[in-house]
Design a binder for these strands. Structure first.
Length: 272
DNA sequence: CTTCTTGTTACTGA
DNA sequence: ATCAGTAACAAGAA
């Protein structure tokens, strides 16, 4: 389940690997995984190259020299695996970009919810602007967080997960952020006080930064562009730890509830 | 067999 | 307008 730290890890790695390499062939294995027609997609890519790789929330944006953009969303099980050597066919490969130097970028996606999409600048901006401020961008600070949350009557968990408000946080990091901020994910955000907002802001920043430092979390499918797992799973304090003793108070066990349609884990003693 | 999981969108009803 | 809840999408694990 790639969230901001995993997508950011992929972005940085991919930037070192494919910038400036000419794309000479495109294999569309699964048409459903490409939002455009295969024909349009292939024509836009062939004989062009990636000049920059950006990210907004969980969306990867590959800028091409011809002013088109490849938007990539991995959703739940998407992977981008880069192979320098001749590759073995992979089980759930949906598309392959082949570069002039014989290297290849595989888009694998077991559950086929992820997608690739070619867009011009205008379309790209329109899609990017549907999501709120990126959770680690310079434009996101305590004041912005307060302004975004102040009048919301919704629960903390549902607001953290809402990509239209803040982009990049998914189920794993939402739970970890709430635990780190010592806030009950069921709290209504308009009831948070200044101290709590400060804790929440610091936890969003700290948890995401730490997760990026450890190259993301592999819980089930996530791997980086070299096929390696992320190292942050061992640092998780509540996600996937229901019934275990809380790492903080060491007294209560981690509770598991449903919130905003998502499994949510928290410590009822430490998170108020 | 059923239920659950994940990110996102679309829809319903309060 | 705002919110919670649910279905849908796919496929596998329990």
């Amino acid at each position: 389940m790639p969230e901001l730290p995993e997508v950011e890890t992929i972005r940085k790695d991919l930037k070192k690997k494919i910038i400036g390499k000419k794309i000479i062939d495109i294999k569309v294995v699964q048409k459903k995984s490409i939002k455009n027609s295969a024909d349009k997609f292939i024509k836009a890519l062939r004989n062009n190259y990636v000049v920059n790789i950006m990210r907004k929330g969980k969306l990867l944006v590959l800028e091409l020299n011809n002013e088109n953009y490849i938007l990539i969303h991995l959703r739940m099980t998407g992977q981008l695996v880069y192979k320098l050597d001749l590759s073995l066919a992979q089980n759930h490969t949906r598309a392959i970009l082949c570069f002039e130097d014989k290297s290849e970028l595989y888009f694998n996606d077991l559950r086929r919810f992820g997608y690739l999409q070619i867009a011009d600048r205008k379309e790209k901006d329109k899609i990017i602007n549907k999501t709120g401020v990126d959770a680690i961008s310079k434009n996101f600070n305590l004041g912005v967080l307060k302004k975004l949350f102040r009048n919301k009557k919704r629960t903390l968990k549902s607001v953290l997960l809402d990509q239209k408000i803040i982009a990049g946080i998914g189920n794993i990091y939402a739970d970890e952020i709430c635990f780190d901020a010592r806030l009950n994910p069921s709290r209504k955000v308009n009831g948070l006080n200044d101290k709590e907002f400060k804790r929440l802001y610091n936890s969003i920043r700290n948890i995401l930064r730490l997760a990026i430092k450890h190259r993301g979390t592999t819980f089930s499918d996530y791997i980086d562009t070299s096929g390696r797992k992320g190292n942050f799973a061992k640092f998780l304090k509540v996600y996937g730890r229901e019934k275990e003793n809380c790492k903080n108070c060491k007294e209560k066990s981690i509770k598991r509830i449903k919130l905003a349609g998502r499994t949510t884990r928290y410590c009822e003693q430490c998170q108020k």
